[in-house]
Design a protein around this nucleic acid. Structure first.
Length: 581
RNA sequence: GGGGUCGUAGUUCAGCUGGUUAGAACGCAUGCCUGUCACGCAUGAGGUCGCGAGUUCGAGUCUCGUCGGCCCCGCCA
């Protein structure tokens, strides 16, 4: 290939505009598409900023080069920018084109398995295998540009607020609480393991003990659990901790940070965010992360059901179960088939079935044997609009609420407008819950969470009634952050560990250093971690976190691009003193 | 760990109750074409029907297992 002196690039393909007309430019990019019309050829050249039409006509000296150019070939093209006689309004650069005088083929490309433009029509599996092609898609490039901007904006904001970016170890200890750890064997101390951090929790608290007062880090966390559309084994958190403050001050900082971030996509976020106690969220929405875009709430119809003369519900009530319902506006027209599907969905979601009631053309109907007059009276009493569909579930209170909550989410899809942002602080979580499997108390948040001071006397008598100073930030039904005030008193911290039934030896082994630190002047402090990937997912309107992570894993924790995880040599295992079972 | 769903040409898909030569579109190759922008026209190449067993005279189609993608429950903040 002949060496060619190229002009310095002044602009990206996608940025060439009418102001460039008459100028001679060099652009670099990938061949997005080619249209050969005999003696005239058009090449759509693509770089990260967009497309530019290149014209190769009779003035081009080396038409033989065209034989070597195909989709995804990398070119440098020099030529003169001219105004188009017939502009293409679909392209930002569509009023101009570049008449090629020199082309250098910088890299050939085999026929690609798919083209970036068409990523939406190929399987995610194929896109993973050739992620570098997938990422060439201009929409993907846009996502990652936004990701970069959000990162920078967050850093600038937190810096201005006096937060210091301090790195914490990636090789640390496994934790007895929480998710499964990714372990890293120590070569020097055979049989001992590091673990990748599930979060920098203890380190950021130690940074408070160290007196930095305000810390942040945009950092990777690792959790070895099963994946979902919004869960990856490694993910990024905006991790924040501050001393000498209460949660109102933290909320204000986070709210302004979030507003700052959402401005990047033109969202006008109104402050402050709504707040709702956990109990209310569960009762009204059957979820600790309610999607407030869905306009209806869960109602209790246990009392009303007493007038329906239903053996089924009477038996349920006799067992102390509750009848929870959803009144879905404008849904009385649901077909029998749709209602059966809802019932099936309810069963799949772990319930026993879903009862419906509605007003049809020929009177009130229900899947339950209830007199039409009784249903009519019920609609009247609860002021239910006649075009509404009523769905009912019967179960123990907590189960009934959870199922109703899942149904609410399932049926509320049409209300989930991606351009609407409903932020919510969920507060007042119980400090503990009872772990049925292990028959012991477990932390709702994590073991460093502080109880409300007024509840401390209840620790021994009614531990499950103790409320934590803990909070989740929820956006459109997705948990995008969570945090708490921390225990900074060693006596209280020891007490909580003991209540969790952690063995003294284990406490000493895993948290000894931490308890020691609390002896030497730990300031009151609190913090939060925001899910950076989830935030980005919602900001870009994507349905999966994988669309804003450059090299994600599949739902079975594989990387289809690199093939990891993979086997390692016997030699490596020997060096670590590890035998595979 | 469990449930659902998908896997056929490079890609996206069709393929009836099992039947002999597995189709389409796009892409690709070759030729023609000077204003296309989903260019057009013509011709052509291209298949381990994910993999492995089984049932059968015969399997893309049925059964079992297995691998992989996605969604959900459990798990995980």
């Amino acid at each position: 290939m002949a060496e060619r002196k190229l002009l310095k690039r002044e602009t990206y393909c996608g940025a060439v505009r009418e102001e460039h007309v008459g100028r001679t430019l060099t652009v670099y990019g990938w061949v997005n598409n080619m249209r050969e019309l005999g003696g005239l050829t058009f090449i759509d050249l693509r770089d990260r900023e967009g497309l530019l039409q290149i014209v190769v006509n009779e003035t081009f000296a080396r038409p033989d080069q065209l034989k070597c150019i195909g989709k995804e070939t990398v070119l440098a093209v020099s030529g003169r920018v001219v105004a188009r006689a017939k502009p293409n309004s679909d392209l930002p650069s569509g009023r101009v084109e570049l008449i090629a005088s020199d082309i250098e083929i910088l890299a050939a490309s085999e026929v690609p398995p798919f083209v970036p433009e068409n990523r939406g029509n190929v399987s995610e599996e194929l896109r993973f295998r050739h992620r570098y092609i997938d990422l060439r898609n201009l929409g993907m490039q846009k996502n990652f540009k936004l990701r970069s901007k959000v990162n920078l904006r967050a850093r600038n904001f937190l810096d201005k607020e006096g937060f210091l970016d301090i790195e914490t170890p990636m090789l640390t200890n496994a934790t007895p609480e929480g998710a499964r750890d990714y372990l890293v064997p120590s070569r020097i101390y055979k049989g001992k393991m590091f673990a990748l951090p599930q979060s920098p929790q203890q380190f950021k608290q130690l940074l408070m003990v160290a007196g930095f007062e305000r810390y942040y880090q945009i950092t990777r966390c690792f959790r070895d659990e099963d994946l979902r559309a919004d869960r990856q084994p490694e993910f990024t958190q905006i991790d924040i901790e501050m001393s000498f403050a209460e949660h109102d001050e933290l909320f204000s900082i986070i709210e302004r940070l979030v507003r700052e971030i959402f401005t990047l996509r033109g969202h006008d976020v109104t402050l402050p965010f709504r707040r709702m106690p956990y109990k209310e969220a569960m009762e009204k929405y059957g979820s600790d992360k309610p999607d407030l875009r869905i306009p209806y709430q869960i109602q209790d119809f246990t009392d009303e059901s007493g007038t329906w003369n239903s053996d089924l519900l009477n038996a349920a009530r006799a067992k102390g179960e509750r009848i929870k319902g959803l009144v879905i506006p404008d849904a009385a027209g649901f077909s029998r088939k749709q209602l059966d599907e809802i019932n099936e969905t309810g069963k799949k979601l772990g319930g026993r079935g879903v009862i419906w009631m509605k007003k049809a053309d020929d009177g009130f109907k229900s899947s339950l044997k209830v007199a039409p007059e009784a249903i009519a009276a019920f609609f009247e009493k609860r002021r239910i609009a006649p075009d509404s569909l009523v769905l009912l579930v019967a179960d123990a209170e907590a189960q009934a609420l959870l199922l109703a909550g899942k149904l609410r989410e399932f049926l509320g899809k049409k209300f989930q407008d991606k351009n609407r942002m409903e932020f919510l602080w969920v507060t007042d979580f119980p400090l503990f819950f009872f772990n049925e499997e292990e028959k012991r108390l477990d932390s709702n948040h994590h073991p460093f969470t502080a109880p409300r001071p007024e509840d401390i006397p209840l620790l021994d008598s009614r531990p499950l009634a103790v409320m934590a100073i803990a909070y989740d930030l929820v956006l459109n039904g997705v948990e995008i952050g969570g945090g708490s005030k921390r225990i900074h008193d060693i006596t209280l911290q020891k007490k909580v560990f003991q209540m969790l039934n952690l063995a003294d030896r284990e406490i000493e082994e895993k948290f000894g250093f931490f308890l020691t630190a609390l002896k030497f002047g730990a300031p009151p402090h609190l913090g939060i971690a925001l899910g950076f990937d989830r935030l980005l997912m919602l900001l870009t309107g994507e349905d999966s976190i994988r669309e804003i992570i450059a090299f994600p894993k599949t739902t079975s924790s594989l990387c289809l691009l690199t093939g990891s995880p993979s086997v390692v040599s016997q030699r490596q295992l020997d060096e670590l003193g590890i035998a595979i079972k």
